[in-house]
Nucleic acid binder design. Structure first.
Lengths: 352, 352
DNA sequence: CTGAAAGCGCTTACAG
DNA sequence: CTGAAAGCGCTTACAG
């Protein structure tokens, strides 16, 4: 009387294949040192049993710690936007730490390309198994991603993507559709004869991202035969004084401005200007649920904030790497975040 | 030469307290059979080391399977709304199954209070450690929750709450604020001289939920001194014919209807009517991102859908129970879901 | 009231 | 190319 089926997992596989569990383990992890014959036999049994490894046991027994490198901008005095992804990253970290995953975070200065280089070098020296990156400096980030590829380290991008560079996944907004939604929101208060200011406040020149937003924005008006003039303004200097000056000029040049769209989180600068000048009748839509913006959302200066769940992006980024690295799960090439609409009325329960 | 600090976890605690790990385990889980003196000593060491148990090891060693009971409405031919929470529940289930958690789902018929009784009885017989419930039938659910309390089984409510009944947590919308947002959205297309139809289509009489939504809805108009007439219509029969008849009547009685608000996912019935009659100039706002509604959102008949992430509610509900039961984490008394605004433009990336 | 020992399902040297 | 054995950090009978 044989005892059958009393085993499960690797033990059962070993029993059926008449080998030791060490050999089963070798096959399970594609390690060398197993004859083709036994390998085949074991693989058949694995398939037959539809074997799913017990991750608990696996992580517990394995002393190996897997480390994930994160490379994102530091919070600056200008904006606390990057607080949110970091929060998500920390949350993910605390959930997977118990499984032996370490997260090493490297923060670079958004106004300093060198710091990006430095931090990315440091990251690589840490010897991580996977990388999460916000590729703010496209060229530099591209070079870095290529280096990772060479080292066979998977890379996931959040917030914006790396065109023409192969990465494991992109987690962030669908920019042109986001611009399209922005245009839609802007029209709620817009008279047909009014002009629109499309403002891009950023020290970066000609960013790929803003161009995609603008495409979507303009296509909304085209699709709906709305012929409002769209005046585009580019501002390299992000401080309030520079912005004020530019706005003053714009309002002098263009008399019939009915609404303003800002392509990023710096919309609060514009809101501040409008409030100071008492320009309450102008629609204003911009990006991101940051403290500075929410104040103006609450007092009605900003009509809508569009938001792409930055915290969630950080969380998902880390978790996707974890799943890919530890569980071997495949990851979607592109995960587009929802295009959230935040107003005065629903902001209290908004989840970043 | 003693080897120090070579141990960690329970072993280290045991070493320092000069007891066996079995005794440490007893203290860790508040089991009986430990003298006050050693108990105190061990607890001090636990605090000193800031000991965090390894859940991996704990769940692996423990043969105990923890089971969670779920009691929600079945998907009916009328609406597939409850598909979403179920999806979230299944997702949570698949994530925690590997830790030895079982989820038993019991579905009741929304048109049949008896089926609720039957399913809740069945659930209790299964001997679950925690319960997730959608308390559609308030009285019956209340009785059930009280029974759970007696049995010391924690209960979490999703979608709607159980007033006056003590539960571990509520995960769902802040209803009055949601109504407030709905009113806001309705006014984008509303002329000051037009009337509003506030429609409640539900076989249930005078539901607590709809009253909260109406409160919020009306307070928006009060807050903004908008004096539009709000005509409330209650429909017990949910089929298209009954609804059509009621609408026909309403439009005959009230000539100046400018917008319609529907308090739940049955807004598609109204949309169908408006479309058939060619009433394109009437604003329409309702609830829930279900297939039937999205069609009308896409073709412009419905202006906005408000949504409270039903899938996420199911997911969070199960995960909260898991955290409470397995990890002993405390759970927030009320977790209000975001009040999402879904339009034609952003629906493609909406996450339920 | 307390402890020694087996075991959860894996991984990892080590030996052959 | 393969296996025996120890061990990951806990829990659980069982014995005293």
């Amino acid at each position: 009387m044989e005892n059958e089926n009393t085993y499960s997992g690797v033990k059962e596989i070993a029993r059926r294949a008449k080998v030791s569990i060490a050999t089963v383990d070798r096959v399970l992890h594609n390690r060398t040192g197993v004859s083709e014959k036994t390998k085949k036999r074991i693989n058949e049994i694995i398939k037959e049993l539809n074997y799913q490894p017990n991750i608990l046991a696996s992580r517990l027994a394995s002393k190996k710690v897997i480390s994930i490198g994160v490379l994102i901008p530091a919070v600056s005095e200008e904006t606390d936007f990057w607080e949110a992804p970091l929060r998500g990253i920390r949350r993910a970290e605390s959930e997977i730490r118990q499984y032996g995953i370490q997260v090493h975070t490297f923060l670079f200065d958004l106004n300093n390309k060198r710091s990006f280089q430095e931090q990315s070098d440091l990251l690589l020296k840490t010897g991580v198994s996977g990388v999460l990156i916000a590729p703010s400096f496209i060229e530099e980030a591209s070079t870095f991603a290529q280096e990772c590829k060479r080292l066979k380290i998977p890379v996931i991008c959040i917030d914006s993507n790396l065109p023409d560079t192969e990465t494991l996944s992109y987690i962030g907004p669908h920019l042109s559709q986001s611009g399209y939604v922005g245009a839609r929101l802007l029209t709620y208060r817009l008279q047909p004869d009014r002009k629109i200011l499309f403002i891009n406040i950023s020290p970066e020149k000609e960013s790929y991202n803003y161009i995609r937003i603008e495409e979507g924005f303009r296509s909304y008006f085209k699709d709906h035969n709305q012929l409002n003039d769209i005046v585009r303004i580019d501002l390299r200097d992000t401080d309030f004084l520079s912005v004020s000056k530019a706005l003053l000029e714009a309002f002098q040049t263009h008399s019939e401005i009915g609404a303003i769209f800002v392509t990023n989180s710096r919309v609060f600068t514009i809101a501040k200007y409008l409030q100071e000048k008492g320009l309450t009748d102008i629609g204003l839509v911009g990006y991101d649920f940051i403290k500075e913006n929410v104040v103006f959302l609450q007092n009605g200066t900003i009509d809508f904030l569009i938001c792409h769940k930055p915290e969630d992006q950080g969380y998902r980024g880390v978790m996707s790497l974890y799943q890919n690295l530890v569980l071997g799960t495949s990851v979607e090439k592109a995960y587009f975040m929802p295009i959230d609409i935040v107003t005065k009325e629903n902001e209290a329960f908004y989840q970043n």
